[in-house]
Nucleic acid binder design. Structure first.
Lengths: 171, 171
DNA sequence: GACGATACGGAACGCACGCCCCGGTTGGCA
DNA sequence: TGCCAACCGGGGCGTGCGTTCCGTATCGTC
């Protein structure tokens, strides 16, 4: 690979990181190109599609988050809640986190699996309501994460969901 | 107004009701026109903009729902929860309910006010956690309502939110 | 039954965006 | 230093959508 090519690739990634984080997946690709100081054609020389660029930017962060959930858990409920908190924290800061769940099927599946494992343990311990499925939880989190970008108070919203997840005393 | 004009207007409204309900606001206007058996131009003769048509379809339902919340409340918490349940029920059946909150600022404001009143009463009675604002609640509900259209279990999701709203026993 | 206003349909416009192509340029090896 | 392959920029294509325009058909009145 030529030196300028590598340089441009990095500039594109840098711009993509910044803009995906602030505006989410729907940011026009031309805007990323402009911010990187290159033409749209150059972006496509390095990444076959917009989604591939998005994945290149988010995949590492998401999988890192998921792996941190695989740590041995002494308290099942705390492990699940910590993971959800981290998701919320990440999503509150960077808008692309919530889009990652939607855009790339692979990441969604990984997340689904990781959450499912944590959820099942917590449910087996009777610490989380038994009628929630992993699918429900992923979907609910996605909705909540998106809500964070519309002015909702992250702490409060997260607390509501966490409290609501606990084994039910009837409302 | 000419007879055929009135007839067409009704056909457009009918098609819009059906398609907005099933596909939400993002349904192409041409699709509504086709389903109504008219051209796109005809739709615009009756409604100045797509949003106006959407509002014509949803406004009545939303305001009806809001007014039903103004009934005198014996139990503040029950009143709030009943209203939220009705929102969820409505949104689970018709996809346009969740869009209405986003698309028309007026409806959003009305809803915000209605929810705010119910929320404040319940909070004053100490039945709902005090750190939630009306804005938080509207945003959270919007996220949850959207989640309903992606395969989430309506009862479970609603229960989580309702449980989570109650005055906190720490999670 | 004829005429004018009204309404209709659908082609066309403007815009935004993802993606591709090509003439020109630049980097690095011989 | 010269040459070729790799790379760049940006104009352009195709698509989808909201909206508008205009020639034509239809309604309702005289």
């Amino acid at each position: 690979m030529r030196a300028d090519a590598a340089r441009n690739r990095e500039k594109v990634l840098e711009a993509a990181r910044e803009l995906f984080a602030s505006k989410g997946f729907e940011v026009p690709l031309d805007e990323i190109a402009t911010q990187a100081g290159v033409g749209p054609g150059t972006v496509y020389r390095h990444f076959p599609t917009k989604q591939a660029l998005f994945q290149a930017v988010t995949e590492a962060r998401v999988t890192a988050m998921i792996e941190s959930a695989s740590a041995p858990a002494d308290d099942a409920r705390a492990a699940l809640f910590a993971f959800l908190s981290r998701m919320a924290e990440e999503a509150a800061a960077k808008r692309d986190m919530s889009d990652a769940i939607t855009v790339t099927p692979e990441l969604r599946k990984s997340l689904h699996a990781a959450l499912g494992a944590l959820l099942e343990k917590a449910q087996r311990a009777g610490q989380v309501r038994a009628d929630v499925t992993a699918t429900d939880l992923v979907i609910l989190m996605k909705g909540m994460l998106q809500s964070l970008h519309e002015g909702g108070n992250p702490q409060v919203l997260l607390q509501i969901v966490l409290t609501g997840l606990q084994s039910s005393r009837k409302p």
